[in-house]
Amino acid sequence: MKGCYIHSAVSISAQDSFDAKSFDFKILENTVEKATAIHPNYRDFIPPAASRRMATGVKMGVTAAKRALQLANLEQPDAIITGSGMGCIEDTEKFLNSIIANNEEFLTPTPFIQSTHNTVGAQIALGLKCKAYNNTFVHGSLSFESALIDAKQLFQENEAQNILVGGVEELGKEFVDYVLMMETSSNQGIKVPFGEGASFFVLSSEPKLGAVNIHDIETISLASENDIIERMKVFLSNNNLTSEKVDAIIFGNNGDSFDSYYNNLASTLFEENTQLQYKNISGEFYTVSAFGLFMATKILEEQKIPSAMLIKNSFKKPLKNILLYNQFKGRNHSFMLISK
């Protein structure tokens, strides 16, 4: 099995994660329904001729990607793979609303062109003149994980040595309010704010001193709470691990009724482990697991855990293996194992 080493990790999120020197982020106020990203100065990364057509998500994605390449000292990746659950919802809404408002007349092409899900991957390629493998996954909360699986597979096939992988989501202006409305209509709904962001990684099959390795990743479309416990046992044993060897487990809790999936796992297999969460600092969105991976990478690199992330049990150094488990509404489960 080839390694999958994180040579750089960059995140634009509701926290000051893009420029931060410290990652000791604070919990988002849960009175806020939508947590917009803290945006870097995009002019530093995107020429005006290109940025004039870009909506928020494309700007975030292209910028995070560019910075990730810079940090990894890489000019051209051998593949560009992105994930986005809602895609370019901002331009989708814009085009849809002009269809409705103008009764299909006087429509301009830009929002349509920029609304396709592959716009971020395409704009990154265009900016780099990168003709390599290019793919985009749009499978809800598994969009980013699918991109990672594709990347790991390319390493395995010797088709690539360095791959740019990222997840991106923008809040948009309208559709998110309908989703929020449905969430808040039930007291079983999501309790953290809805968020947005872009997290990009340069992954490499070549080890680098101190680089974090993505050991394994598995996705499961549909499973019961008990299935998840059984599947996690198999996942650990496939990786020659027992739960004691997991230095921290990061859960995707968002406060809705499906948190029982995490609680069930926490109280059975990981009772004694350091248990962490991240959606209280990032908000919830389809590709938020990319932010989860970003934070996990920082934790391993810096051997520090932001106190806002700690759910239960303090931690002991050295932190070596971190496990991430995420699901959304009781489906689209993902396990990720990373280590340093």
Binding site: A49, R53, E105, F106, L107, T108, P109, T110, I113
Partner: peptide
């Protein structure tokens, strides 16, 4: 000005509208 084919389409709509 550095406009491209997509801008041309935008301008066509402006002429019409």
């Amino acid at each position: 000005l550095g406009l491209d084919s997509i801008d041309a389409l935008e301008l066509i709509v402006m002429l019409d509208k």
